[in-house]
Design a protein around this nucleic acid. Sequence first.
DNA 1: ATCTATACATACCTCATGGTAACTGTCATG
DNA 2: CATGACAGTTACCATGAGGTATGTATAGAT
Lengths: 137, 137
Amino acid sequence: MVTVMNDHTFDFCETLTDAQDALAREMLERASAKWPLRAMHILAEAKGPLRFSRVLERVEGISQKVLTQTLRTLESDGLVTRTLYPQVPPRVEYELTPLGGELLVEVVTLWQWIANRLPDFEAARKRAPQATDTSKG
Amino acid sequence: MVTVMNDHTFDFCETLTDAQDALAREMLERASAKWPLRAMHILAEAKGPLRFSRVLERVEGISQKVLTQTLRTLESDGLVTRTLYPQVPPRVEYELTPLGGELLVEVVTLWQWIANRLPDFEAARKRAPQATDTSKG
DNA sequence: ATCTATACATACCTCATGGTAACTGTCATG
DNA sequence: CATGACAGTTACCATGAGGTATGTATAGAT
């Protein structure tokens, strides 16, 4: 459990095992990563189940291989459901779970906070652009 | 700007340029990543400036090369300050900025939410352990 | 003269991520 | 018989993160 004080100081009480701590960190990273976040967002917008192809169309720039991996990981974390209809041609539907929806709300809240501070970040990068690599662009 | 409703539906209004959206995503990923988060946490705990070596000692498992990179990136994003004292041997102190402290509060809030839902995530992984790779452990 | 300490920079290596391209299996269509 | 659609899987490759080991500069200690 973590206690957050007003003055930006922190007090981590060790009520989590190492494994639990690692799991929480991993979930945090996964939920903030590009493709999982985009996929969850698409599924949230849909407000219902979506076929694989529909998700693939809407998550701009993702490859089908990575989308498969992403959705399977989200499924194994309990954030989306995967429903296979044994038809020909095959039909698979993905849907955000309540847990996934709640997590997305939390992540979007953080995203919003960051978006509100964008001028600060932009200003910081203009002052010290060393580590903000643009060589690949 | 993003509007979050109670029922896990989302409405992204396009008041951000593509560049701003990319920057916000990047900051979200960076702030949730392992090493930056650990480094910020250490600096927050210290409640004051810390020399490079002290941070290196406390961020368990990080190499000095990666810590240098991490701290420089945090500096260029305005989340920490880097103060060089022209002494021999050299002395460099790092300190969390107010912006960094505020961001850390937000990330820890998300972390707390995840920690509170750990039983859900553990249960999900037990049900569908495919994508939760343990081969490297 | 050599060693130590600090805060890096640099070279080199490994491994995971993620991209493209091609293959799979089944049925309807032409 | 060949093709296309769907939801993948598989092989292969490029990139980048991150590890180790070593170099750098300077001054004090031995």
